[in-house]
């Protein structure tokens, strides 16, 4: 359940931002999460309220934008969809696929006041 640490890191990033920009409350935090990365969106949602309680992000709404997995197939010489991190190319079945998307894990934006 490293999602707890990830949300703690989100709170730290929000604190960073508060030092740069003046706001007193966070209404919404939008995360961008890769579909074939290591963070589980349901687990992020599950611990969000508990971890943010009493922090600058207390009461904020969590939005998660999922980024679909994709990779570059060296055989097909094109980008293909990936359903799991080490999947073979869905077009040619080859294993020479380098993941190009789906591992994202970032704070995209937030709504503050």
């Amino acid at each position: 359940m490293h999602e707890v640490s990830l949300i703690e890191s989100v709170v730290a990033l929000v604190e960073d931002e508060r030092r740069k920009q003046d706001f007193s409350r966070v209404r919404m935090i939008k995360l961008r999460v890769g579909a074939i990365g290591h963070a589980e969106p349901d687990a992020l949602r599950f611990c969000f309220d508990a971890v943010t309680s009493g922090t600058i992000a207390d009461g904020a709404r969590l939005e998660i934008e999922m980024v679909a997995g994709a990779g570059w197939c060296a055989e097909c010489r094109r980008t293909v969809a990936l359903g799991e991190r080490f999947a073979a190319c869905p077009a040619c079945g080859g294993a020479r696929v380098r993941m190009t998307a789906g591992n994202e894990l970032s704070v995209a934006e937030m709504e503050v006041e």
């Binding site: 990830l6 990033l13 970032s106 704070v107 995209a108 934006e109 937030m110 709504e111 006041e113």
Partner: peptide
């Protein structure tokens, strides 16, 4: 109330 774009890696 306003939107702030951050785009920072959580890690």
């Amino acid at each position: 109330e306003r939107m702030i774009s951050i785009e920072r890696d959580i890690l």
